[in-house]
């Protein structure tokens, strides 16, 4: 089936099965590898993208259900200048880095709705994003830093 939706500002049409998750449409059909696969069951957050500005797990989102604009890590900014991306680099957050695209997308969605999140707000917004390497303390600090610069 052909499906048309907007990714990072560009209208895109793909021809895939209706139940194919957005994650695999992005990665294997549109060849956008920034969105990551970690569990496929909505339990790790590695695949987080924005749909209509909300943080969504793309591994649990069938392509047929995508009816609003999608933003992926590749489209968060043109050049890595988003305050969250900047804070992540300034604080040297990543270890293996594999979770960080998803972490950044969750953090950016949080800050878009809450310009000064408390630690409790961060816990709630970020608890679905696993970092197997354990960079949580730096992520928390980086969200506070990005909030200060928005």
């Amino acid at each position: 089936m052909p499906y048309t939706f907007t990714v990072n500002g560009t209208s895109t049409t793909v021809d895939t099965p209706e139940d194919m998750p957005l994650l695999w449409v992005l990665r294997d059909v549109l060849k956008m590898k920034g969105t990551k696969f970690g569990c496929g069951v909505g339990a790790c957050g590695a695949c987080t993208v924005h749909i209509d500005g909300r943080a969504v797990r793309s591994c649990m989102t069938p392509v047929a259900n995508v009816s609003a604009p999608v933003t992926t890590i590749e489209g968060l900014s043109e050049d890595g200048s988003h305050p969250v991306q900047q804070a992540w680099m300034e604080l040297d957050v990543p270890q293996c880095g594999y979770c960080q695209a998803g972490q950044i997308m969750s953090a950016a969605a949080l800050l878009a709705n809450n310009s000064d999140p408390s630690d409790a707000d961060i816990n709630t917004a970020m608890n679905g994003n696993v970092c197997r390497c354990g960079t949580y303390m730096r992520i928390r600090e980086a969200i506070h830093r990005a909030a200060a610069s928005v």
């Binding site: 590898k33 040297d92 960080q100």
Partner: peptide, 23 residues
Amino acid sequence: QPVPGVENFQMVTGQPIYSIDVE
């Protein structure tokens, strides 16, 4: 000195640097 990861920029901008991304 605290030297940041050499691929931090690629990571935070979603560039295809991992094994799963090789295509």
